[in-house]
Design a protein around this nucleic acid. Structure first.
Length: 428
RNA sequence: GGAGGGGUGGCGGAGUUCGGCUUAACGCACCGGUCUUGAAAACCGGCAGGCCCGCAAGGGUCUCAUGGGUUCAAAUCCCAUCCCCUCCGCCA
């Protein structure tokens, strides 16, 4: 959520910034400004009446206490009865205006960082790349073809039991998953991130607070009976962890690494990435999150991004990193890097991790602030990044580490987390 | 799921019977000062946040879990919701 005061005092700057997203937020901004001015007008009227009522009520109390209290008290009470009615009327109008303002404001995305390229997806800019895609003598197999002979991935039964885009992961892939998770958690814990297992069911409040609602409503599984939502990423419960809190400035940056299953409806992705487990409704992910001082989110972003790259390099996956264009950013992000690993079967780079700086967009919604020994509380900046998206990382590993015999080698950094002697998946 | 009890400032904790100097006592923590070679102790003072108006100084308003209601006036009375605790039942 943007600061209404910023919009009020600097509408042209906001308009300009949003246009870099390609947003046609013009009319929305005009409505916001109009509602804001209505709100302040009504607020002022209501507060004047309330001030009158307060002083008069105190007057009445004083007179009654002194034992007096004749007709003038009666008439004052009568007058305040009327004022009370007027206040109620103003408050009703005010509430309607504020609800409208809130609704409009929630739908406005974050202002993009100046270093995020303007425009849509096609303007995203490759920042760097690492490694060289392997060349194969024979056509490389995709992850599903590699998995099927050893029954490591079972899409058919996933579909039978749960529907399309659900899978069973079996055998050595299960060990590989937990090896990745353990490797990621240990690495991040060593870099100042506190491990957390988060709740995966959250209230609407947390979804709005993190900026997924109202924009991504249709992406989220909602449990009607309990009015709870299945999270699509542990970013949600991690961000909401300090909702309505004032952090101690001395503790910043407050860093967490969360592990959870993630659920996504993938509405609107019909026909896209339908093979294997590249795009499924349920997957596991290790996610990092940081609450940091507003002056340091830039360097924190770089730090987190560097961790993601370090991991891809240790896993030996050729990748490229992309600075996402403003128009392709999620609602909350001011800037985002996507890291795309080389997928041999597709002969292209696909997103495996990403890292976003959400500045104060989420913290304003979540009311998450920090305060030093002196001075007033201020909104923190929030950042999130994928450490390991298990499914996609497994795909990248399988395809890049496949042998001519159709076996899959295990990267050295992961071997110590697998049952003894497993240097290849599904062997024996 | 059943029966009770309870949510007050950074923390602890009064106040709720009987609505009105509660602009929330008191303590702890914290900050500033006096004292001291320095520190501790003691003493003095300060110490919530949001919003609105204002160049500022300052003023107003709201907030005692949340939202309504009663009243001239609500931490206090009424209703609803959320959360926490205890006991019972069920349970990985």
């Amino acid at each position: 959520m943007l600061d209404i005061k910023l919009i009020r005092s600097n509408p042209e700057m906001v308009r300009e910034a949003l246009s870099r997203r390609g947003e046609t937020a013009e009319t929305a901004l005009d409505r916001l400004l109009e509602l804001d001015s209505q709100r302040r007008d009504l607020l002022q009227q209501a507060e004047e009446k309330r001030a009158l009522r307060n002083t008069t009520s105190q007057e009445i109390a004083r007179i009654k206490k002194s034992g007096a209290g004749g007709p003038e008290v009666q008439s004052a009470m009568q007058a305040m009865r009327e004022v009370g009615g007027q206040i109620k009327e103003l408050e009703t109008q005010l509430k309607a205006v504020e609800a409208g303002l809130e609704e409009e404001l929630l739908a406005v995305p974050n202002l993009p960082d100046p270093t995020a390229p303007a425009g849509g997806e096609e303007n995203s800019r490759e920042e760097m790349s690492w490694g060289t895609p392997r060349t194969f003598d024979l056509e490389p197999k995709d992850h599903l073809d590699l998995a099927l002979p050893r029954d490591l991935i079972d899409m058919e039964r996933g579909a039978k039991v749960s529907g399309s885009r659900f899978a069973y992961l079996k055998g050595d892939l299960v060990f590989l998953q937990f090896a990745l998770v353990q490797y990621a958690l240990e690495k991040l814990a060593g870099k100042g991130f506190r491990p957390v297992v988060v709740p995966v069911l959250v209230r609407d409040e947390a979804m709005y607070g993190t900026g997924f609602f109202p924009t991504d409503l249709q992406q989220v599984y909602h449990l009607e009976a309990d009015d709870l939502n299945l999270v699509g990423t542990s970013e949600v419960p991690l961000a909401a962890l300090h909702m309505n809190e004032i952090l101690d400035e001395a503790d910043l940056p407050v860093r967490y690494v969360g592990y959870s299953t993630c659920f996504r409806r993938e509405a609107g992705a019909a026909g896209k990435d339908t093979r294997g487990i590249f795009r499924v409704h349920q997957f596991d992910k290790v996610e990092m999150f940081s609450f940091c001082h507003p002056d340091r989110s830039g360097e924190e972003h770089d730090y987190m991004w560097s961790i993601e790259r370090e991991i891809l390099e240790e896993l030996g996956l050729p990748y490229r990193a992309v600075n996402i264009a403003a128009g392709d950013l999620g609602a909350s992000a001011a800037k985002k890097y996507d890291n795309e690993a080389w997928i041999p079967s597709q002969e292209r780079y696909r997103e495996v991790t990403s890292c976003s700086n959400c500045t104060d967009y989420q913290s304003r919604r979540l009311k998450c602030r920090a305060k030093g020994e002196k001075g007033s509380p201020y909104l923190v900046h929030t950042l999130n990044g994928t450490v390991v998206a298990v499914g996609r990382t497994i795909i990248a590993l399988m395809e890049n580490y496949q042998t001519v015999d159709g076996l899959v080698a295990v990267p050295e950094v992961l071997q110590r987390y697998l049952p003894a002697g497993k240097a290849f998946l599904g062997k024996g």
